[in-house]
Nucleic acid binder design. Structure first.
Lengths: 227, 227
DNA sequence: CCGGATCCGGGTTGATACTG
DNA sequence: CAGTATCAACCCGGATCCGG
């Protein structure tokens, strides 16, 4: 493991989690919980398998993750974050917040996984009607499915198919992102490929206000053609 | 510039600032303000000069920094963060917070620069007597000098020699860090090489309480021999 | 001195194949 | 399923050189 050899808190942190792929492995374990080797590979398209093995070994040595050998019925290895690893959440949150403005451009060959919506959802969505009964919103993009659950003042997201959602969104990842971040209303997004169904009130309950989208002026410069 | 090709906020952020040295360049510009090429090299011991040039060009292209050609009297190039680059501060803060527990071990050949104290100071120090007149504390470690200024409820740090400080700390970087983070009292640090002078009350005004040092249980495991 | 550019050796990464 | 083995390509670090 290469080190910067600097007595600096930032450099010391980057010595441990600054190498390529490392923070994305942490992202997967934060958003999906304990994972098998194969699950991690699926969530990290493009990673070489030997590199994943090397990173997992390093992360184990530095106390960020631990591996658990599941007993015979399942007979598989699970990787999970230690408390020290979970303490990286603020780092991922900050990076995701800074990265959101970069998601306006698509990148033709960008892969997409439903669990990657977790950070934007944490940042942008809130339950504005904590008193009312909980609701679920199905989200679908690029064949990936997730369920947003709002109730009691909190909003969570998990991957998978919704049972019987109160509302649903379906469209290209960038358009779904634009709606979840409040940059586009569901109506305006219709022209860009979004299909939505169910209760509009349920969407209003969790989506950002639409107006107060901060950070816009800190975004990299754009023509603003899709406003 | 290599990309992960993932439509994920974290991955997009790391596409821009995830390469080696990049976030440390941002650290230098955040803690020292606009810098010359040579200043940056001094604050990034070990960086290859071609790599610094490459990173600066990439950061300029991505809108994180901008270069300013100073007019003839100085006739030099200054690199400074754009607002978009300054928006990386929460990322650096989070990384520094996570990295502080790693600073208990020294690393024999670790370089040290006074400006690297800035993040721990922001995290740990506070002005507990906002009403009283401002005070200054001189800090010296490894030949590097900095001045902590507390007053009006805020604590700042800058590099350089103090004029006539109300208190001063001098010792090995790890011991100074232990005192600034509240892990050691100035008295206990004496046995480890700290020399301090001036008003103890001034130190108490800004140093952490000594007891409530959080994060200790999230630190990588240690014998705890220096408690 | 300042702000790089160029060259080279070695280490890291990425793609593929293979294995218990 | 959970990796290891191999190898080419690329990136990084160190040294040197060079135009203002």
């Amino acid at each position: 493991m290469r080190s910067y050899h600097e007595y600096c808190a930032v450099a010391k942190a980057l010595d441990v989690v600054g190498e390529r792929w490392t923070l994305l492995i942490v992202r997967e374990l934060l958003t999906r919980g304990a994972c098998r080797y194969t699950d991690l590979r699926a969530g990290l398209p493009g990673i070489a398998t030997n590199l994943l093995a090397t990173r997992l070994r390093e992360l184990e040595e530095t106390g960020v993750i631990e591996r658990e050998e599941a007993p015979p019925p399942v007979a598989t290895t699970l990787f999970r974050l230690t408390p020290r690893g979970q303490a990286l959440r603020p780092v991922l949150d900050a990076l995701a917040g800074w990265g959101v403005p970069l998601m306006r451009e698509a990148g033709d060959e960008d892969a997409f996984r439903a669990q990657w919506l977790a950070f934007p959802v944490r940042t942008f969505l809130s339950d504005k009607s904590p008193g009312e009964p909980p609701v679920t919103i199905g989200v679908r993009a690029d064949g990936e499915a997730a369920v947003i659950e709002a109730g009691g003042g909190t909003v969570t997201i998990r991957t998978g198919e919704p049972g019987d959602p109160d509302a649903s969104l379906d469209g290209p990842p960038q358009v779904v992102m634009a709606v979840l971040s409040g940059r586009l209303s569901p109506e305006d997004a219709g022209a860009k490929g979004l299909r939505w169904a169910g209760s509009r009130a349920v969407l209003d309950r969790v989506l950002p206000s639409g107006q107060a989208v901060a950070m816009a002026d800190l975004a990299p410069d754009h023509g603003g053609e899709d406003r």
